[in-house]
Design a protein around this nucleic acid. Structure first.
Lengths: 338, 338
DNA sequence: CTCAGGCTTTACAACGTTATATAGCCCCAT
DNA sequence: ATGGGGCTATATAACGTTGTAAAGCCTGAG
């Protein structure tokens, strides 16, 4: 066991509180005293016990970031941004992963780390509004991601409908007419909650282009494999779209892979657009066109929101904040003519 | 603030310890009493304060995993495996990222989270043996990754030299003769610590093939961009290798991208092998041949080692453990003839 | 020379939990 | 009837820290 304040105090022949004062740079300590205590600290290799400090202060300086899947580079990149943003406010980030399971998402919102984390940033997948309404934990909660909730919590997400429409407009602008959507979660395909799907439908419908169920490929997950499987399923049932709008980059990459395996050329035969702008898409052999959400802004806003409620303004009214996004055109949607 | 044991005790009209006993499923509690207390717990929505429990027990059930970069999918995938392995032992994982900076790596090993984490799994980049020797923190430490240290800590890593030789042998077996190495860190290029580089050199030298400095492309980092830049640098200086062995998959993918941009065909003109077996490589338009370390085993062993020292066998003598690996041949090294 | 007032240090309690030791109870065997 | 022994519940202390209030010390003004 490491040394405690008591040990240091004993060695230095002073009170425990004085040592505490030195450790915390309390101003009213004479230089001589400070030095004497410091010597004892050094000699014993004393390190403050943060757990005890946390207990005493009622705060830990830790905020949790719960994401569905670390293996998805979007969340890995987002996590990096959140960690940096939190560090700027002297907070540490504890990562949780929910695997997108409602049960785990509920668990996280209910504060199963009671008093270990001061706040929570959650990117939910299956969580329902009702799960949120019964929440008792009083740690600030910020929600990220595509879904919207009618619950009194901050929600930070780009305008997914508009972003999806931008992506689809990009494709129609290239002259594409049969634009498939890949990545509607099977159980949510019909729900209005699926904002990107809604944007796809709205844009196509306004353009007078087909947007029926036959052009929607449902998936079970959000990975590369799901994208490839969905693409294959689409082609297997005789569908032959001239463009793909995927729910995210990973699925777009999987779809591209499937297309190439079947001898279809990207972008000559089929244009592909993803969503997230993960680095992997930039370096893909066929660089991927994508909607790029401002991850830095998302991370910064989420952290500021949590920290803001923790210090000073606990009763801020909950807001929906929409950071910016941009469409980044790359090779996967080079003009078919070229 | 949430309710505490005291509040529950008061409401139920029992002692604090009795409530504690109920919460912890202490066996000798009468059913009647248990129910009475449980009712009070439910009514107040009591949740145990884990911080206080941690202080009392001297353990937090948290182990930290410190990796250089979450954006590298290898570490993201490894993190997932570690989290799962830890969960099987009822431990939680706190992620740290060091950005591969020695200063941060040292900080982590010195236990700057004093008493918050019970143990540490670190994948170091620039850490030196000397940094380890002065370590005072007594939390168990397990080292992962390519580097070897003469320090009394568990080290878990595949046999990097042998694995690199396997990869290079695969290339020579295809008839490749000018095999470049991409990804020697600039400042380490000459050090024996660079095991994969050593394996590359040994194998080529035994085969009587060129393995001079002209075939080594140094990089500053470990990302896709670094791989592309190194590849371009190699080509710019007139080098025209017929195969690439990259330090990791990310650099291999970057190099492939650079090759394709310059009109070279993979695998017809140049074979490419990576290292790590990240999912991204499987789904690349040209699927990447790679050395696949057994990530599950690495994670499992690391966690078992930490947990083992925490419970029962604190004085186990430190070991070097080498999990298995396999070479997975994919399209990027299809026989050039084909 | 004294005392007010500021600076420095201290003693004590408290954060919420669990371990230890003890007290109370009931049942059964003597 | 009495006492032992097992079971249940309790009081108290402790984990290591910091806030509070008060004590001690010193300086300088009256």
């Amino acid at each position: 066991m490491g040394a405690s304040l008591k040990d240091v105090a004993q060695l230095a022949g002073v009170s425990v509180k004085t040592v505490s004062n030195v450790v915390n740079n309390y101003p009213h300590v004479t230089p001589g005293m400070r030095e004497r205590v410091q010597r004892a600290i050094d000699e014993l290799g004393y390190r403050p016990n943060l757990t005890a400090r946390h207990l005493r202060k009622g705060r830990t300086g830790i905020i949790a970031l719960a994401v569905p899947e670390l293996g998805n580079p979007y969340f890995a990149e987002l996590a990096g941004a959140v960690i940096d943003a939190a560090a700027r406010h002297d907070y540490t980030v504890l990562m949780d992963h929910t695997a997108g399971q409602r049960e785990k998402e509920v668990l996280v919102t209910q504060g199963f780390r009671a008093h270990v984390i001061d706040g929570l940033i959650l990117s939910p997948i299956e969580l329902e509004t009702s799960d949120l309404l019964g929440r008792r934990d009083d740690a600030p909660l910020v929600l990220l991601g595509e879904r919207e909730y009618d619950a009194p919590y901050d929600q930070i997400a780009i305008d997914n409908v508009a972003a999806a429409r931008t992506a689809v407009r990009h494709l129609t602008g290239l002259g594409r007419r049969r634009i498939a959507f890949i990545g509607a979660r099977r159980e949510m395909a019909r729900r209005p909650a699926h904002l990107r799907l809604r944007g796809w439908r709205e844009e196509l419908s306004e353009a007078g282009l087909p947007c029926g169920e036959d052009l929607v490929a449902a998936t079970d997950g959000y990975g590369r494999w799901d994208g490839a499987a969905a693409m294959n399923a689409l082609l297997d049932r005789g569908e032959r779209p001239d463009a793909i709008f995927a729910y995210n980059d990973l699925m777009a990459l999987g779809a591209m892979r499937a297309l190439v395996e079947r001898g279809l050329r990207v972008p000559q035969d089929v244009s592909v657009v993803g969503f997230d702008d993960v680095e992997e898409g930039r370096f893909s052999t066929i660089a991927l066109t994508t909607v790029s959400p401002d991850k830095q802004a998302i991370a910064r806003l989420a952290v500021e929101r949590v920290v803001g409620r923790l210090t000073g303004a606990p009763q801020m009214s909950p807001e929906r904040i929409q950071p910016g996004y941009t469409l980044i055109a790359r090779e996967s949607t080079s003009p078919p003519a070229a």
